[in-house]
Structures are given as C-alpha cells and as structure tokens.
Amino acid sequence: MIVNEQVSIDHGLKKDEYAKICELLKRTPNITELGIFSAMWNEHCSYKSSRLHLKTLPTKGKQVIQGPGENAGVVDIGDNDAIVFKIESHNHPSFIEPYQGAATGVGGIMRDVFTMGARPIANLNSIHFGSPQHKKTKNLLRGVVHGIGGYGNCMGVPTIAGQTNFDSSYNGNILVNAMTLGLVKKDKIFYSKATGLGKPVIYVGSKTGRDGIHGASMASASFDEKIEEKKPTVQVGDPFTDYYLKLA
C-alpha cells in the first residue's frame, strides 16, 4: 500500500505530523511504520494536547515512589508496603461498544498495575451518562456496568466504589473512567525500563486479533455521524488470559 498524506490523515495524523515523520525518517514511511506512529502519536497515548494541563498537577512528594512516566504511579504507605494506582478513561470505545469498551478499560488499568509487580486489590470507577430519557442511555449504562463488573469479577478484583452521573451534556459523549489499586512490597516494584544489548524480548498477552486495531487513534478523534462504523476498533477483552498474567 502506498503511503501519502491522505493515508496518514486517515490514520488520525495531522498534516504537519506527517511532514515531521518524513523529516525524521528522511523518507516516506511504509504502512507498518505509519501504523506505529499513528498508535504512538495520538492523544490517547501521547497526551500531546493535555500534557500542558497535566503538568500543573502535583506529582512529587516524600511518599511518592513513582510519578508519571511508568505504567502506573506508586505511593509509599509505610511498613515496606506501597500502593500502585492508575486511572484511565475509556470514553469513546464505551460509547461505540459499551460492554467491551468498559471491560477493556478495566482490563487495561489492571494490566498497568500488575506490570508494576503489584497485585490489584480494588477497582473504582466514575461514569457519566447522558439524560436518562435519551434513547442511547439505557443501553450504554447497561453495557458499561456489565463490562466493568464482568471483567473485574473474572479477574477476582472487587469494584469497591464509584460515582455515576446523568446529564444531557453527555448525550453524545459519555465518560467512563476506571481506576485500579494494587498492593506491592516496596522492594518488589517492577519497572518497565530495561537496557542492555543482546537481551531477549518476550512479548506476552492476549491473542492479537482483528479487533482493536487503530483503537487509540479512534479514541483520540472527534465523533461524527459515522462513528458506529468504528466498532471494530474496539478491542474484545480476554480476562482469562489477563488473569494468568496477573498471577505470573
């Protein structure tokens, strides 16, 4: 497939971003490379527009073991124990496919917590829906609640608290925020950064399918009337495999 500016725009990249890619590579990217840039440079993964605001939040303190920059944050709670926590939104996928969208939101943060060496012990959520009278609300609410509960239950992690709001301003764009807390011994925290030449790289996780491709780019774009066509960009969760990663 030939890569040009239009293809890159279809991948959710901006014109100037495409120019930057060509400049960095000193050539036109191939379709695989473009896919990688599309996945890494979207708002969902890179926080390119929100990082300005995120930077104003407090991230340092005596008890903070790990601030931004890793899979999840870590806070010292004394007695050699630390709490690992992560919160993430899964708004767009949950609007398109509420069950899987919400389920993989929960799955994603549990993954981020247990990859820090912690055992997830509790889930929380903050979910915001449109007016109860709106035609989509009932179905969305049902799917999201099922997704959060179902995935958490499979993983053996209880959902202990949450917040639910209904307001017509969310009619066309619901908010689904999920949070996981994990417990870890301070000396058992595991970081994602690894260095060294010639070391093997092993990739583990659920099977890769045709679902979920360009999911992060979709999640970063604005909604239009064709959004229903984006259903295949929502990943289908596999809590069974995730459970085994948690134990590993």
């Binding site: 239950n153 499979c154 053996g156 596999d238 809590p239 069974f240 495999t241 459970y243």
Partner: peptide, 8 residues
C-alpha cells in the same frame, strides 16, 4: 469459585 478455563 472463579472462572475455570475462562468459562468460555
């Protein structure tokens, strides 16, 4: 209790 073999 649980989800033996994912209950698939």
């Amino acid at each position: 209790g649980g989800f033996s073999y994912g209950d698939y």
